[in-house]
Simulated assay, not measured.
Amino acid sequence: MLKPIYRGGLLLPECQLWFDPRKRKPFAVISHAHGDHVANHDCYLATPETIALIRVRNGNAMADRGRALSYGEVYVGKGYRLSFYPAGHVLGSAMAYLETDAGETFLYTGDFKTRQGLAAEAIDVPQADTLVMETTFGRAEYVFPSFEETCARIHDFCDRALAAGSTPVLLAYSLGKAQEVLKILELRPQALMVHKAIAPLNQVYSAYGVVMPDTRPLDFLNMRDCIVVMPPAVLKKMPRKDCLVAMVSGWGMDGSAKYRYGVDEVLPLSDHADFPDLLQFVDQVAPKTVYATHGYEQAFAATLRGRGYTAWSLAQNDQLELNL
Rank of each mutant, 00 (worst) to 15 (best):
235 L>C: 05
108 Y>N: 04
319 Q>I: 09
188 R>L: 14
322 L>A: 15
221 L>G: 05
102 A>V: 01
13 P>K: 02
92 G>A: 07
236 K>G: 03
73 E>S: 15
94 A>I: 09
185 L>Q: 09
105 T>Y: 00
24 R>K: 10
321 E>S: 12
213 P>F: 11
113 K>H: 02
270 S>A: 15
298 Q>K: 15
217 P>I: 04
128 A>E: 04
234 V>Q: 03
196 K>H: 15
252 G>M: 06
159 D>L: 00
186 E>R: 14
313 S>G: 12
244 L>I: 11
25 K>V: 05
137 F>T: 14
213 P>I: 09
103 G>E: 07
181 V>Q: 01
181 V>M: 13
115 R>M: 06
104 E>Y: 11
204 V>F: 03
97 Y>H: 13
175 L>H: 00
82 L>V: 11
130 T>Q: 02
278 L>Y: 11
295 G>Y: 07
116 Q>G: 05
292 A>Y: 07
100 T>G: 12
38 V>P: 04
21 P>E: 02
149 E>V: 03
161 A>T: 11
139 R>H: 10
43 C>G: 06
133 M>D: 10
97 Y>M: 05
260 R>D: 13
172 A>T: 06
40 N>D: 15
129 D>H: 03
207 A>W: 04
158 C>S: 07
252 G>S: 06
96 A>L: 00
131 L>C: 10
319 Q>E: 15
312 W>T: 14
259 Y>W: 11
43 C>A: 14
122 A>D: 14
150 T>K: 00
271 D>P: 07
183 K>C: 06
117 G>N: 08
305 R>S: 08
97 Y>K: 05
136 T>D: 11
77 G>P: 10
240 R>S: 05
56 V>T: 13
8 G>H: 08
220 F>D: 06
13 P>D: 05
194 V>F: 02
191 A>E: 13
32 H>E: 14
87 A>G: 01
20 D>Q: 02
14 E>P: 12
182 L>E: 07
12 L>D: 04
39 A>T: 04
114 T>S: 08
114 T>D: 04
105 T>M: 06
67 R>E: 14
99 E>G: 03
69 L>S: 03
276 P>C: 06
232 P>M: 04
74 V>C: 11
42 D>V: 08
66 G>N: 00
255 G>C: 01
80 Y>C: 07
254 D>R: 15
221 L>M: 13
271 D>E: 12
231 P>L: 02
238 M>G: 01
229 V>K: 13
215 T>H: 09
280 Q>C: 12
144 F>V: 14
39 A>C: 01
190 Q>G: 08
220 F>H: 08
4 P>C: 05
15 C>E: 12
223 M>A: 13
305 R>L: 09
73 E>R: 12
209 G>D: 00
187 L>R: 12
15 C>M: 12
324 L>Y: 01
69 L>K: 14
319 Q>R: 15
111 D>W: 04
10 L>A: 11
144 F>P: 09
